[in-house]
Amino acid sequence: MSDVDHELSRLFDATRCGTEPAPGDEARIRASLGARLAQAAAAGAIAGAAASSAGTGASVAAKPVLGAAALILKLAGGALLFGVAATAVVALQHSNADVVATSPMAPSMRSAAVTTLSPAPAATISRRSGGASLETPQPPTIVTARSSVAPTHPRVEPTAAASADDPGTDLAGELRLVQSMQSALASQNDAEALRLAGEHARLFPRGTLVEEREGVRAIALCHGGVDGEKALESFARRFPRSPQLGRVRAACKP
């Protein structure tokens, strides 16, 4: 073996060991990833609304479920143990898969599918000494209801239990409203999307899904051509790092 080959072999050995993660790397990245997954799931839900009826198959129908999972994650209040929630997401998607696989819907109807998350999981959240964690002994109940082509959007009020403490924490109510907004947007009913965004703003001024609401509002305004540029500017200023910014920009492009 020549000197060069020997040196190369030595460098490979050193690099094999030297590029392995350090002991703290996995935990550090896992902690950051929890927040990213929540954000990605919420963005996926918005994408389902912003996308036209060109979406295909299970991915469109799964997005509201991901949005629901984002709520589970957000409920933990920052320090996230994404593992449990991520498992819940897979379970939720799995439970929804039969509906999607066996009941092909017209794209517009797929977009209008409303998935609601029972508020029960909120009660299973507890804080431990090491930070917030999620306990999900039973998978949260998912009810998938398909609306008609012209969906109706029931008025959403905060549930009594949640509103008694703080209306801003009624995440199931928020989720229903945001999904109704998305359905309206997908059905090209921008006026209804704006009305629902206004309702969300009234009921949940400090809600968890304010960013999602404002994304829908900006897109709806831009579709209508009224104050579109202003809506884009306002959204970009308020949420400069939002994953929805690209979609809002695309909708507002002249």
Partner: peptide, 17 residues
């Protein structure tokens, strides 16, 4: 169904390095 958490645990090192 594959569980994301298990995939993360299994492949974290592979992806990182």
């Amino acid at each position: 169904p594959l569980e994301f958490d298990a995939v993360y645990t299994e492949f974290f090192g592979f992806v990182f390095r």
